[in-house]
């Protein structure tokens, strides 16, 4: 099962563009850019269901208090207290944030960063060489199909309960996705583009730098985007399973000591981190692909 990407991006919720033909003789009214005021109204009005659910939660939790589901308002207050009581100099982030969330983020950056550094070159290599691809794809397929959570005991076996265990797990969990998507992107580069490039007799380095990598960029970025979701999942499970610090550990600790408000506040923090990461990646992707398109035009 290659893609345990339960938490990949797609934060924008706009419907896909109407697939109308050039003259669009369909009954759909042509879509036009609406004035900002109207777009604001429709943006706010698309929140009503979320608000309704939040209110329902609040009301139910207040009327029939259960231990596990505290009212939302209290969770938000707790969230602020837990993470945002620091000075302006530290972006208002509290000491608790640095103690609990920073280790998680560091491991995420190390494991996922390593996966990018290793995965992209390997992917380019496999995308360029059909022989290398035929040799190693069977194993990579198997690896993608391995449920990554099953690797956790192995990671603990190898590294013990240490940061390197989490980093390793995130690395092996994401590197396959990056390799496959990169290879796909590279192998999909138009043959004509390559021939054109060759006919210009540019150096191999320039070929990679100016032609192959930009042309493969959509595939590479797909790998990046899909893998961040997996990286987050693995970051959390590995911390829940065995660790001594991190957001996952925070959740477990609060659960075991019956501090449910703090537990929910940690859920919320993970959610915020995941949304932020996805937004950033989406922005980067838009940026990079726009550059790539321009590059493609000027290169012709």
């Amino acid at each position: 099962m290659p893609d345990p990407s339960g938490a990949t991006s797609t934060l924008t919720s706009a419907p896909p563009p109407p697939p109308a033909g050039d003259k669009a003789p369909t009954t759909r009214v042509p879509r036009r850019k609406r004035p900002f005021g109207r777009r604001l109204v429709s943006g706010v009005s698309s929140l009503w269901l979320l608000v309704a659910i939040a209110i329902l939660w609040q009301v139910v939790a207040t009327l029939s208090p259960t231990l596990y589901f505290p009212p939302l308002s209290k969770i938000f207050v707790q969230f602020g207290q837990d993470w945002f009581t620091g000075d302006p100099s530290s972006l208002f982030l509290s000491q608790h944030f640095f103690d609990a969330a920073l280790p998680s983020l560091r491991r995420l950056a190390q494991g996922w960063g390593l996966a990018l550094v290793v995965g992209i070159p390997v992917g380019i290599l496999l995308g360029r060489s059909a022989v290398a691809a035929a040799m190693y794809f069977p194993f990579i397929r198997f690896w993608l199909a391995e449920p990554k959570s099953a690797i956790i005991p192995v990671a603990v076996q190898i590294f013990g309960i240490a940061d390197s265990m989490n980093v390793f797990l995130i690395f092996v969990g994401t590197v396959g996705l990056i390799i496959v998507n990169t290879a796909d992107g590279v192998a999909g580069v138009d043959r004509m583009t390559l021939q054109t490039a060759r006919s210009l007799r540019i150096s191999p380095f320039t070929l990679y730098r100016r032609v192959l990598v930009p042309a493969a960029m959509p595939g590479i970025l797909t790998g990046v985007r899909v893998s961040i979701g997996v990286a987050l999942i693995l970051m959390v499970i590995s911390e829940l399973y065995a660790t001594t610090a991190g957001v996952g550990y925070e959740i477990l600790l609060n659960q075991q000591s019956f501090k449910f408000l703090q537990m929910w506040s940690a859920f919320l923090l993970i959610g915020v981190i995941s949304v932020l990461l996805n937004v950033v990646l989406e922005l980067i992707e838009k940026r990079v692909l726009r550059w790539q398109r321009r590059e493609g035009l000027s290169g012709q």
Binding site: L11, L50, I53, V236, L240, L252, I270, V272
Partner: peptide, 24 residues
């Protein structure tokens, strides 16, 4: 659109993080 907003909020927290609450 409202339901897409809810879906995107709901899935922001990786499911595995919710394991403790599921166990409770």
């Amino acid at each position: 659109r409202p339901s897409m907003v809810v879906v995107n909020v709901a899935r922001a927290v990786p499911a595995t993080a919710l394991l403790p609450i599921a166990i409770l």
